[in-house]
Amino acid sequence: MGGHHWLSHQLSSIVGEPTEIGLSHATEWVLMAVSVSIAVIALLMAVNIYRKKTDEAPTSFIGQFFYNKWHIDELYNTVIVNPLNRFAGFLKNSIEKQVIDGAVNGTGKLVQYSARQLRLIQNGQVGYYILFMVLGIVLLFLLWFNDTLLLRFFHNLIK
């Protein structure tokens, strides 16, 4: 008996040759006989039930259970589909929009905000300008006398 493995070489250039998983012919026959007889029994049962009534929903508990396909759809929806959808919605609406895009747009807003604030320094009062000039000169002197420190800092930055 046994089938021919005519598809087994399709990916051999990528994954290598497949190894044979052999079953004895007796096992194959037994497996076929069992599965065919289960199918035949189920077929006969179905004919027996649906010959009498057609569209009515069953009333017994077991009947209901099978009528609703073992409630697999409901179970699947509650356990997998709905949590998955909620999680995806959370990522889309909160994380993506507010956290990540918020950080990006926030950078832009911060720049604009600081520009608006810094603009206030240009207020036309000469006293302020002199103050800033003196502060600038002090800063320059500080840098001047600490040039080795500064050079070392830039050196480390590049290294």
């Binding site: 959808n85 995806a88 990522l91």
Partner: peptide, 10 residues
Amino acid sequence: LYASFIAIRQ
């Protein structure tokens, strides 16, 4: 994974 999840809700 992040992009795939967001794609689900688009």
